[in-house]
Simulated assay, not measured.
Amino acid sequence: MTWITRQRFEIGGLMAIQAGSGPSVLLLHGVGLRAEAWGAQLDGLSHQAHLTAPDLPGHGDSPPLCANAGLSGYSDAAMAVLARLRAPTVVVGHSMGAMIALDLAVTAPERVCGVVAMNAVFERSAEAARAVQARAAELNGSTPADPSTTLRRWFGDATSAERDACRAWLLAMNPIAYKMAYTAFAQSQKPDRADLANLGCPALFITGSLEPNSTPAMTRAMANLAPKGRAQIVEGAAHMMPMTHAHDVTAALSQFLDEVPG
Rank of each mutant, 00 (worst) to 15 (best):
S254W: 00
D103F: 04
G93Y: 08
P54S: 14
M180N: 05
S62I: 00
E10C: 04
H47S: 13
D248E: 14
P242A: 08
L171W: 05
I176E: 10
L42I: 01
F9E: 11
L102V: 15
A49T: 00
L56W: 05
M79L: 13
H47Q: 13
V90Y: 00
M222H: 12
P227M: 11
L65S: 11
S254A: 15
R167E: 15
W3C: 06
V249L: 14
G200P: 08
L102M: 12
H94W: 14
T215L: 04
L27H: 06
M240L: 04
P216K: 06
D61L: 07
A223F: 09
A69P: 05
L51W: 10
I100C: 05
L171K: 09
P23Q: 11
E259K: 02
A83L: 10
V121M: 11
E127V: 13
H59T: 08
L33M: 13
P144E: 03
V116C: 03
E211P: 00
S142P: 00
L26R: 04
V106W: 06
R135I: 07
M180G: 01
A128R: 15
A165E: 02
P191V: 08
A221F: 11
Q7W: 00
D103K: 05
I206Q: 10
D76Q: 15
N68I: 00
T215R: 12
G30Y: 06
C113G: 04
R152S: 11
R230T: 15
N174R: 01
V112Q: 00
A53E: 11
S254P: 03
V115F: 09
Q189Y: 05
T107F: 08
N140K: 06
S188F: 12
D43Y: 05
S142E: 15
L28Q: 08
A251M: 02
M241W: 00
R84L: 03
N140E: 14
A161W: 02
E123R: 15
A129S: 14
K190H: 14
R111Y: 00
C66G: 12
E259F: 01
S95N: 04
A49D: 10
M79F: 03
N198C: 15
R84K: 01
W169G: 04
M173K: 07
